[in-house]
Amino acid sequence: MASLLSLVEKHPAIWRGNQAPIGQSRRLATGYLSLDEAILGGFPEYGVVRISGRTGIGELSLLKNVFTQTSENAFYLFVNPPGVLITNSLRRVNVVPENVHVVSTSSELSLWAAEEAIKSASCSVLLLWCEHINAAQARRLQVAAVQHECLVVIFEPENQRSAALPVPLDLTITAIDQGLQVDIRKLQGGWPKQNIVVPVSFTPNNTTINSLMRKYSMHAEDDALHG
C-alpha cells in the first residue's frame, strides 16, 4: 500500500497541494508574435512590469490583449496618469470603464498608494506613472504584487536611464515608423533582447484618404489631358 502511494508520488507530473510549484503562473500574451516570442510567451500574470518610454507612443495599446485576459470584474487602478483619463478611449484598449478608478497624488505618496492598493487584494491591474522608482521600492511592490495576485505596470519617462529593476520584466519602448521598437532590459528566466519591432497601430490616419485622392486626382489629370 505504501509503495503504491510512493509510486504515485514519484510521478513527475503529480504533486501535492501544499507543494504547488512556483512560477507556474501563466503568461498573458500581448498578441504581437515578435514580442511574445521574446518575452517567454507574454507578460507575467502577477508581478511588476516596467515600461520606459514617452507618453503617447502606444504604450496602452501594446497592453490591449493583456487586458482582455484579466478576469471579468477586474478592478483597474490608474495612479497619476499623465492627463485626465477619458472613458470613451478606454474601451479601445479593452478596459471596462466602470471598473476603473484614478488616484492623483504627489509622487512621494503615489508609491504608498500603489502599495496600499496591491495589499488590499481588491485590485487586479495597477497602472502607475512615476518619475523614478528605485530597486528597493520596486522589490517591495513586486513582493506585494505576487502575494496579492496583482499585475502592476509602471510607466516611467524615457530619459531615466536607470539600472534594471528586480522585476520579472523591464522594457523600453521607442516609436518608429512601423510601430514600436521594444528593447528588453531585463527578463526573469530569459535573455534580454534588443530591437524587437512591434507593429502597433492605434490611431486612425489619413493614408486611405491620401491614396484615394492621389488615385482619383491622377485620373482627373488624365481626363483633363485627354479632354
Binding site: V84, V102, V103
Partner: peptide, 16 residues
C-alpha cells in the same frame, strides 16, 4: 487612500 491623500485624490475617468 482618502484618509491619507484627501477626498479628492480619488476619481473616476472622465466621460465626454
Amino acid at each position: 487612500l482618502a484618509a491619507r491623500l484627501g477626498e479628492d485624490a480619488i476619481s473616476v475617468p472622465h466621460t465626454l
